[in-house]
Amino acid sequence: MAETSALLAVTDLQAWYGESHILHGASFEVRAGEVVTLLGRNGVGKTTTLKSIMGMVEQRAGSVRFDGRELIRLSSDAIARAGIAICPEERGIFSSLDVRENLLLPPQLLPGGLDLDHIFELFPNLRERQASQGTKLSGGEQQMLAIARILRTGARLLLLDEPTEGLAPVIIQQIGRTIGALKAQGFTILLVEQNFNFAATIADRYYVMEHGRIVDHFPTAALAANMGKLHEYLGV
């Protein structure tokens, strides 16, 4: 399939929350430098997929290979040290930390992370709000902060979970430009999105998820041809 070998190769990924079996053998891959989008209706297991890659779902099985290394049995802190970082769906801004502390919280684990000046160039709003309480920011600013703080760590693969959810169109555009800039910097991005129009502006390839499995995939070039199917998958 790949001319370059995959940076992330997920094979037969299974996950459970207690008794409920959520992921039923999802398989997909992300190559270095790509922006890959995971699409799917509410509750199909997109967030669970990202959390399982990150090691945040306790009961999981299958294979997650990153840069040739098997991660499925590692704890989430070890997975972070391997070079993956997550921007969670609920954003996870800490209310007992100010903006600067939130930004500096994830430690630098690997060389190659962005420095603060660079991050403030990407997110100028955050520079002025450094002393504010993290959760006092607007929804858009919190989303920027949630993305910004994982850029320092040296992670090569960013897992972004619905970064546009509930945000105004202008902010969504800004986030789109930022993700483009990050791709240009060499970051590899696995994006979960329901906002299909947004995803179309930045993604290289798409995977479609249903009931905890990947049921389809295609590159952006084949988007138009797949429009009918997609509307059915996403129920829009």
Binding site: S76, D77, F94, P107, I150
Partner: peptide, 22 residues
């Protein structure tokens, strides 16, 4: 800084761990 780890882990230990902190 160490204290900010502590405060953050009090709020959301799973996420702090996913940032690479033991």
């Amino acid at each position: 800084r160490l204290g900010s780890y502590l405060r953050a882990a009090t709020e959301n230990p799973a996420l702090v761990r996913a940032f690479g902190i033991n």
